[in-house]
Each structure stands twice: as C-alpha cells, then as structure tokens.
Write a protein that binds this DNA or RNA. Structure first.
Lengths: 345, 345
DNA sequence: CTGAAAGCGCTTACAG
DNA sequence: CTGAAAGCGCTTACAG
C-alpha cells in the first residue's frame, strides 16, 4: 500500500505541491475553485499529511508535553483527559512525560523531550511546577510552557490556577458556621504549594472568626489515602479530639473517614470531615465527603489553549496567559452541625 | 541558540555524518577509537538527534499508540503507566488515543493517528480490543498491534492476557470453601469479554461444587461504583438475599460494600463481598475488599516489549506474541465464613 | 493568486 | 570499516 504524498495530490489536481500545502493548512490566497478541487482530490485519495515531514520543515511539532510527577494519580488522570480532549480539537498531540525530581538524571529526560521531540509547548503539573530547575530547562530552550497551580507566576511562563486560599477559607467558614470550634487540618506534602495556600486559607478563616488554631490538630500528610488513615488514628485516639477535620485533599479525607468508621464514630454526628478536590474518592464512601470542586480538566484544557494561541507564542510574556478558574463548595453528608456540648455554649 | 545537528558533530569529530549516525544508533562497523571520539563530541555539544528527521528518513516513528475507551479510569492509569515506563526504557514515546466507538467518525481519528503519526505499533485496551472494525484498521495499514485481554487471539495480532476464567473460578471456590451457597454475581458491561469469562469461571466453580446458581442474584453492572451502589440496593432489599457477592471488578464491589454499610449490615458477618482487579478502590474501604490481583501494568509493559521486538515486527504472525500473565487471589477483610443458619446444615 | 527551488536533519542504498 | 549521494515529504522564502 503505497503512501499518498502531497505530490500525488498535486499531480492529480493539476496544481503545485505548494498550493496543496496552502489548502491543507487553510492559508489564504487560493482561488475557491482550485481549493475545492484540491479538497476533492484529498478526499478521493484519503491523503493524510506526514506529520514528521511537516515538523521537520516547519520546525513545529504539533506536540505538547504534559510533565507530571505521579502519572498514576486520579489528579493526573483528570488533568490528562482535559488536555487530551482539547489537544485533539486543536489537532495537536499530547505526550505524557513523568518527571521524578528525586531521581538523578531527570534533567536528561526532559532535555531529550524538548530537543528530540521539538515540543511546541509544555504543561507542568503541580508540584513540579514549582521546581525552578525544571522551569529553567524550558526557558532556556524557549519552549512555551504553562504552570498549573504554581506558587509564583513568572512573567514568561503561562499559569492556570484556582483560588486555593479562598476555597479553603470558604470551607473553613462553612465548618465554623456549623458550630465547630475544634477544627483539625491535615496538610499535604511540603513541596505542594497549593497545600500551603489551603492551610493559609484555613488559618485566615479561623483568625477572622477569633478562634485559636489548636496546633496539635494540624498534622502533615502526603496526599495519600494511607496517610489519611494513619493520621486519623493519631488525631482520633484520645478523648480530647477535634469535632471537625479538614483535609487538604479527598484521598486523605477518605482515609480519615475510614478511620472514624473503624473506631465506631458516627460521621457527621461525632465528627465532621471535609476534603478538597472533588475526586472520585470523595463519592466512593458513605457518607459522601463534603469537598471543594477543583476544575482540574478545565485547567488543563485552558493550558492547552494558551499554548496553542499564536498571540502567546509570538509574544511571551503575555498578559492573558495567567488564568484563574472558578471552584465550588460541594456540601455532602460528611459534614454536619457540631453536637459537642462544650461547644454549644 | 543554534540547534546542534549531525553535521556539526561530524565536522567536529572529523568524520562523515553517516559515521555519526552509526555511533548514535549503536550499529557495528565503527573502529572503537572513532566511536569514542564521536561519543565525546556528542557529549560536548549535547547533541540530540531530531526525532522527526530520523522518522522521516527511516519511516519509523519510535511512537507507540495506546488506544483506549475510557482514559480516565483507574484501569487506564495503571495500563498507561506500565506502558509509559517501558517505552521510556526502550526509547520509544507513547501517545494516548481515546476511542469512542459510540461516536460516528471515530475511524477517522484512528486512521489519522496511523497515517500522520506513522505509529510503529499500537496497544489496544479492553473492551475495544474486541471491536473487529478497529482491529481491521491496524491490519490494513500493517501496523503491528497487541490486544489486551481480548476474547479471541487473531494470529496476526499480539495478545496479552490473564486467566480471567481461572481467577474467577478460584475466587468462587474460595467463597464456597467459606461455606457460602447463595452467592450472587455482578456482571460487567456486555461488551467486556473479560467480564463474560469471569462469569463463566464463576458458573464453572458453582457447577463443580454441585450448587445451583440463583439467577435472581446474577445482575448486570457497568463497572462503575455507582452501578455497584444501585445493584446493591436491589440485591440486599428483601429478606431472601445472598450471603456472598462476587463483583466483576472492584469499583462495583465497593459500591456493594457501601450499600451494605448504609443498610447497617456487617461485612463480612452478614455478607461477604469479593471484587476483581486489585484497584485502589479495593483498599479504600473498611473492611478492605478481597479481590484478584490483575497485573495491569505488567500486561501493558509486556505489550510494549512485543511491539518493539524486531522478531515480532519482521515476522507477523509470531508464535511468542501471545502471552498469559499470572494473577493472584488477595484475601482481605470483606470475606469471611458463612454465618447463615440454613447454610450450616 | 500560484509555483520552482532549496532546505529541514536525518537514513538508505550503494561504493569503495 | 567509512563516506558521498540521494531522498524521505513537507514548508520556507522568494519570484512572478
């Protein structure tokens, strides 16, 4: 089965290869009747341009890279899906590149993607969006890149984020509104800047309500279900325990919930539990977990939009390349009014 | 920043481009001292071959496609990760292509990947591995492809599977061994051939033990947590209900478990629940769910190995391209001895 | 509005 | 063991 090339199309349509190229790429300056004739031949021959030839001559790859720490997480799945769908709409392809900053030589893999794949752009997921050494690699090679939920917004990087601080504050206000005073907070990993912003939002809400944070109830997890399980054991052991727990993500919140159930506590009557993400784990439990809906797929799609926008590519830094998407508080069954006597006062 | 090309390396090393090419690709017939000299220059210049130029001239893309129905599922994440890691080891790249057989025009997307990306091979995940029209596309274009867990094993397709029938039979034997006689079975979607093989294994074990299957307790789900939830309501409503439930995958088993908990049943004392997959959902509950470990990532990695193996590429059909990987029964807290009086007899 | 020429950076096929 | 030439299938830059 001989491959159909641009020359075959040109010959059959009685025009030059250049004209076929113009039609294929939707350029101007082609007479309508010629354009139609070419399109007809393209369809007849089922001609598909060779992406490599195009890339080689134009030095554009139509390839975007998604650089991500842990490609197996539910977060990664949502982000990837959002990016994939949008890439397809834009006739780009997506290559997922796992980056393990803990493994020596990671730079080489990244450089390799950039150099041999000639990536047209990169989406950099948290937490590695905050690694200056990684960002520098893209900057040096002049590869347009968008950071997802970064701690800072460098002028020559795009950025897509949500208001982690504000969302955490809303959640905390909601818990306080339910009468809770002894609210515990489960932090995420230290390198996760969004987790830090969430904690700040929590503390801001507590301060605004004039409630002192009990530091014994502020503990660090690693975003995993397992860490939620273990921290739950520690937090719920003694008689002196919080009436509500706010975890930095849903997987940990689910771990807390399971621990409470194991200890025969009633949720939400004995303990309210709130998460963050609106991950599948927040729905795969009983009661379902109150959480913050984070627009993960939308953020990834927006990142693609920024990267393929000629205005951004031609003109970095670009004012419109820093986006903030909306979140939402999702109230479910895991949170309820504080029923603790000493707090009714 | 001027890009370093093969000519630059050749000039600086005082050899021809062809010799540099030989060194880069690890071919024979290069004097050791020349090889070393070239390697030194490659390192000095940090030369990275342009993947597009290589692909264009060699008509190999070093790109593998993963074609998958639902790229957001936990199954997809595991498969993708297994494939990604192995691709990296083999210096291939992976492109994920969602395929929605329900949407008209899906063929065009697939043809496009094949034709414009010049895919070197394809991994086809279940359930679309059983769609003849899809397989035909790869066959026609002579793209080597490996099916994951297909219902049939065409001679000119590779295949990687596990023994779904045997594994389901083991699980059922285990439940029967615990004294259960009234065992319900939750089927997967009709188009999922592995789910059918699991049901057959279930029925074979029941028949071998001389136990009649109560067809009221055999119900169809769609692999989703939600369907497990709903089917649980139906199965556990009346007084006449099964003492054990075996679901075709873990997400549905988790749904069953949550329903049992909602209905104040004790698991496993009132009801044993078993799943299939060893997905995260089987561990994110209390009690944890007894299941079958399915080697998803290993299956995907094996598929990559088959695809990049020159012996397979040169010589399709190939006898060694049909693999069966080992599974394991994982006993956890959700299953226990049958405590129903009428069954003790 | 259209096209002929040159070139992108490699590898293939052939010599020597 | 090594290299000069041609070519992969497009696009760029330039003419007209």
């Amino acid at each position: 089965m001989k491959t159909v090339t641009i020359k075959d199309v040109a010959a059959r349509a009685g025009v030059s290869a250049k004209t076929v190229s113009r039609v294929i790429n939707g350029e101007d300056h082609v007479r309508p009747e010629i354009r139609e004739a070419v399109q007809r031949v393209v369809a007849e021959l089922d001609y598909r341009p060779n992406a490599f030839a195009r890339s080689l001559s134009s030095s554009r790859s139509y390839l975007l890279g998604l650089f991500i720490d842990d490609p197996v997480s539910g977060y990664a799945a949502d982000v990837q899906h959002g990016a994939l769908i949008r890439c397809r709409e834009r006739s780009y392809h997506l290559v997922v590149e796992p980056v393990d900053l803990g493994r020596p030589g990671w730079q080489d893999h990244v450089r390799d993607s950039i150099a041999s794949l000639r990536l047209d752009g990169a989406i950099i997921a948290p937490p590695i969006c905050d690694a200056p050494e990684l960002i520098a690699l893209f900057r040096q090679s002049a590869v347009p890149h968008v950071l997802m939920a970064p701690s800072t917004e460098p002028a020559d990087s795009g950025a897509v984020r949500m208001d982690d601080h504000g969302a955490a504050r809303e959640m905390t206000d909601y818990l306080i509104g339910l009468g809770h005073r002894h609210i515990g907070f489960v932090q995420g990993p230290e390198n996760h800047s969004a987790s830090i912003r969430r904690e700040e939002g929590f503390r801001a809400a507590m301060a605004a309500a004039g409630i002192a944070v009990d530091e014994r109830f502020v503990v660090r997890g690693d975003f995993s279900f397992r860490s939620g399980l273990e921290l739950g054991e520690a937090l719920l052991r003694g008689p002196d325990r919080p009436s509500a727990l706010f975890a930095c993500n849903d997987d940990m919140a689910l771990g807390l919930l399971i621990t409470a159930i194991k200890r025969d506590m009633q949720v939400p009557d004995d303990l309210s539990i709130a998460g963050f993400d609106d991950a599948a784990s927040s729905r795969a439990a009983w009661p379902q977990i109150t959480t913050i809906r984070q627009p993960k797929a939308e953020m990834a799609a927006a990142a693609v939009d920024i990267l393929v926008d000629p205005a951004f590519r031609k003109n970095i830094p670009h004012p419109d390349a820093h986006l903030m998407l909306a979140h939402a508080l999702v109230v479910r069954g895991s949170t309820g009014p504080c029923r603790r006597d000493d707090e009714q006062a």
